[in-house]
Design a protein around this nucleic acid. Sequence first.
DNA 1: CTGGGGAGGGGGCCC
DNA 2: CGGGCCCCCTCCCCA
Length: 565
Amino acid sequence: MELPNHAKQLLLQLNQQRAKGYLCDVIIVVENALFRAHKNILAASSIYFKSLILHDNLINLDTDMVNPSVFRQVLDFIYTGKLLSSDQVSDHNFSALLTAASYLQLHDLAALCRKKLKRSGRSLLTKPTTPTNGRTSRNQRLSSTPVTQMLISGLKDSDKPKRREELLKEELSEDEMFIGSTANSLSPSTSKNGSNGTTTSNNNNISSNSGGIQELGLDLSKKSPSGSTATEEVSPSSIPQESPQSASESTANSASFEENPTNPQMVGGEPMILGDAGGGGEESQPPPDVDPHSKNPPRPTARSRQRPKGEANKADDSERAALPNGVAKRLNVNKSSDGTFQCKEEDEGMENGQEQSEESGNSESEGGRNSANYVYRQEGFEPALGDNLYVCIPCGKGFPSSEELNAHVETHTEEELYIKEEEEEDVFPKEEEAEAEDLSSQASLVNSGGEARRFSCSVCSRSYKDPATLRQHEKTHWLTRPFPCNICGKMFTQRGTMTRHMRSHLGLKPFACEECGMRFTRQYRLTEHMRVHSGEKPYECQLCGGKFTQQRNLISHLRMHTSPS
DNA sequence: CTGGGGAGGGGGCCC
DNA sequence: CGGGCCCCCTCCCCA
């Protein structure tokens, strides 16, 4: 017994979800356009994607191999099994599609393109790879995850591209050169903005693609105090900042992303349709001998890296430190072991398929389960909400998109929210009140020295010099966090914090040390770091006279004095 | 092996 | 909105 349309329907649903961004767990950056998609779908479509998205939520594609409009077609094809009609796609476009398909290892799409080009009597500029060819599969292995390979390869950066090219030239026949030729342009260290390898994220396979960053609606650039860097090439043009979510959707628009993905621009002519929409992918192909990286993930682990290079395990840290402590305290949200952003940690020992689903599950459910005060993409379908998956916790209303939710959240007055908060007294139990009071008394201590602070918080009685600061502070009492990270979904109370957080996703380290070249995400870090070179140790322990370059180390040192042992 | 120090990184939050 | 600071987590190194 078999449902004839099952695969088709499933794909249709997924494509609709893609259009809404629902459960999308990966962003693909192509030049200045962002595309949201589902990891599982991409992984099922291409070995290349499979290895790329294993540990990354943000994929930067080589713009020499694919441009936004071509990638849009590629993505449409992945989700529908259909290509635009030949009326819509010129031979030139088919060549571009073939290039992209080969690069992305979408064999079915590549085959379609080749067929089309052959039919139109055009000699192929780039000869095809034959998926059934044994050599090709080795070839694919070589080129399947160029970025990954660069990252894990023992070769020196400078040697890698050359060596790869040599390998390919040595071993590949003419028709294989096509894929091979992609390889040397993919590494972050060799791509156009990758000349400064240090700006490349250590675990995001991206470089500082200014376009992509801009398209996130955020100006993540910073002026480095030390002069020219690749990072500075990021355009500082300020983008109207709506919610990142909306930014990403406007991105989609700007990239002519589908408005009606369920019927992806089937304007006239006969579309090329894969025989089986659901089964045409990798499933039908010989077992991949490719992708040795799936077991040696592309992401260098913290331990495998040398600290002195200056690239600490950013994402690991962010994943571990993701729980906002302040909020956890205030709202009595325990730091649970299932915590946040642990997907990558869990990944380490898992096999691909399982891993991907687990990972996306984790990251996706992040907003929902992380803590009570996070309102974002409620997991599980609530029938009453229908497609309104973005739920405002205080009032329970659902919205179809995060920006609508955000707009709605703004309409809640602080008073409403506080009333709501008080009603939910269990959210703020007695101990927490005590703690809050404690904090506020600390605050008043701090405040007491300064000038008059006329603006007091009605919740915790902290006071501030100006109403804007008070308002900012009051947001910390809200049950909602209006600023979601477009990449991992983590929510923030302040846009600036979210922007800063995004920088870490994107590997932007605008602040460079003139002495050693080490780069930092924040000016303050650089300032701290400079003490390493100057030998300055401004923090002194009053108990033992020990001196420290960083205050935090003095603090942890003091703990050593005060701890019972 | 362990504890302490140094240092990188993240989030919260006030200015 | 960015800067600066605080606090926390974590890793690495070394005695």
